[in-house]
Design a binder for these strands. Sequence first.
DNA 1: AAAACGGGGGC
DNA 2: GCCCCAGTTTT
Length: 362
Amino acid sequence: MKVEERVPQIIEQFNEQHFRDQLIDWFDKEQRILPWRENQDPYRVWVSEIMLQQTRVDTVIPYYHHFMNLFPTPKDLADADEQAVLKAWEGLGYYSRARNLQNAVREVVQDYGGIVPDDKYKLKKLKGVGPYTQGAILSIAYDQPEPAVDGNVMRVLSRILNIDDDIAIPKTRKLFEGLVYELISESNPSAFNQGLMELGALICTPKSPSCLLCPVQDQCRAFAEGVESELPIKSSKKKQKKVPYLALIIEDESGNVLIEKRPEEGLLASMWQYPMVPMTDLDKESVKHWFYGEYGLHIELQSTVDHVKHVFSHLIWEMEVVRVSIVGGDLDRQNAQFVSKDDIDKFPYPVSHQKIHQYTLL
DNA sequence: AAAACGGGGGC
DNA sequence: GCCCCAGTTTT
């Protein structure tokens, strides 16, 4: 059945006005004090929404303060060096968010005079602005009644309305957007959307929700049926693939260490790392030959100093960290350079390689 | 529709 | 170890 048919069917018998009022009253009283709630500045809202994608509030807060100090306005971010932006994002993950945000902010400065658009179609065209962020900016910064459906909202509404659609399926988000269009407060869409998310974060949590404290408990169909812990339905994803690597600590006679910049696309784009040897179809004996072909340096493997396992959402790196000495040759690789130990931490690294820093200091 | 894309925290 | 998190882009 299509969304347009299902929405009225689901909403029938549901007291929308009562729900809106209770949710907004609760949010006005109980909302957390957060740095991006100081005002409605669209740029501040935007940055917060990008940082909050797949990332917890407590993780974001210190990054947000630091980021807004470095780049207080769209102009500041547009003018910044990409590597400086990545450095400010270091450790937050999903680094394409940072590069897309800067790309989009540059477009806003160029095309819209530095004013974040309040038009849903212009907004959606910006890099990194998907359906959720679009709705969040429009409702929170511009008071427009647009849905902002994230994981919280799908969980909360699946329980309140007792919906058992698989929230892992893209189509299901459309259903919840249709429902929010129907339910949302026209007079205070900001508090309505944020209230839904705040409820998901504080009360209607994934495991053991605090239904006895819930401001809309008397409206919740899942609670009435005693099935709140069964919702939402989410199909499980497959497990990560393991990928073996050698991570090399290579120091020259001056005590400088070899690091390299990753490609500008793909995993950990434009971040820095210690040279990595993919061991999927390589053995320890052939590493020296492979490395000479790639880097132009003759090396000798010294000692293994650690084994670092790093888990991503879709794969697992298993890195053997090896100290290496240079026997001869000349560095011949455009993305790699020797840097002094004082300069090492001026570059942005993924957490997997931050784990290796300690061994370079020895 | 499915996969790529990070990292941390809770249990 | 598994699940989830104020998701978007690419295939």
